[in-house]
Nucleic acid binder design. Structure first.
Lengths: 201, 201
DNA sequence: CTTGAGTTGTACTGATCGGTACAGTCCGGC
DNA sequence: GCCGGACTGTACCGATCAGTACAACTCAAG
């Protein structure tokens, strides 16, 4: 009967608390390892609230993925304004800074779900779209460089962005597992060097 | 009371069937998404058999990880005999060949589990060790090149191997999600070029 | 003050979860 | 043949799973 909305500020708060708790738990324990009951216990909400705002667990996962993407892009402000090569360097510095917390590299929440849900026909497309939006900002920056003649004409911005994303994801995966920033730093440098290897002018 | 062994050929067959089914199911649905009951249904074994050979589900996961590593290395025969730069090229070709199945890129089973279990204190070290063994072969090959003067003296084989692994994992993650070999091919080329950028002689 | 949509608490369902109990069967060595 | 350890089938346990039913509460608008 119910599904998405949240029509009062009180309801919005509840919905947020549920998504918050779910995002945190699913990041640590995975989706299948995070029961609805645990989410509700952690958020202080009741079951009727959860199923008032979400049709089922999958729809909660969907909201969690959106939340992850917002967090990620929010932590990389420069990605929205990539105009020069120096901006790309700044972007990699931002990622490195987020990962240099005392708790050790915190991985990519999207990447964390991808291994588990990469074959789920309902969720995989949502993850793919999230990555594509992420990459689209890199692609846009590369295109603007291309227009200015600072990137080779025969370079493919979408493909370069995809390769950079693969590097970043791999670095985050290994860095998180090993509680070591080195793989992330090296992967970011490699990704950046690869982009810059197509520079012109 | 029970745990590891398998003392008759009949028992070994049963144990193998359980691990087989678990490996397949956990690859597709993740660990938490794969119940012991499903594994037993798929393998045709009974619950008493499972708990005869494995103390609990975690120990089954451990066996599955070992199985994954064996599969992976078995599909990359050249990794055991990396003596020249051409061998590294051959190695990347082997990975690409495995991923070029009609079913589309099949991801890395270890990588698939890492996102889900990267924070599990019991399982994460096992995954880390598996990656380390994988990398150790690359490292060994790089060291032999270094001894021959074909790799810069100041290059760090372990770190280069780690970076290459990050690239490969990222490429497989994105390639699998997108059912596209391109991210894998590009990431492999990038990893290889990075290694070769430290070549000498 | 009343109304009604939005929101919430509590209790419940049937299915499934990981794990155990225990009696039985298989089969090589004596 | 018959003994004993390896193996197997079946039934069961309490806990937890995702999801539902339904009555009660909150609170702004009229």
């Amino acid at each position: 009967m119910d599904g998405q909305p949240a029509k009062t500020s009180r309801g919005r708060l509840t919905r947020e608390a549920i998504v918050d708790a779910a995002a945190e738990l699913m990041y640590v324990n995975g989706v299948a390892g995070t029961s609805v009951d645990k989410v509700l216990a952690a958020s202080g909400a009741g079951k009727s609230q959860m199923y008032h705002y979400f049709k089922n667990k999958d729809q909660l996962v969907e909201a969690v993925i959106k939340r992850y993407l917002d967090e990620i892009l929010g932590n990389q402000p420069t990605i929205f304004a990539l105009r020069e090569w120096a901006d790309f360097e700044q972007w990699t510095r931002e990622i490195l800074a987020i990962q240099s917390t005392p708790k050790g590299p915190i991985a990519c929440p999207l990447g964390n779900l991808t291994g588990e849900l990469g074959d789920d026909p309902k969720i995989a497309p949502l993850l793919d779209n999230a990555y594509r939006e992420w990459e689209s900002h890199l692609e846009k920056g590369l295109k603007s460089l291309q227009e200015k003649g600072k990137l080779a004409d025969d370079a493919d911005p979408a493909r370069l962005a995809q390769t950079a994303m693969a590097c970043v994801q791999g670095g985050l995966l290994m860095g998180h597992l090993r509680h070591d920033i080195t793989p992330i730093a090296d992967a970011l440098k490699l990704a950046l060097d690869h982009l810059k290897s197509h520079a012109r002018g």
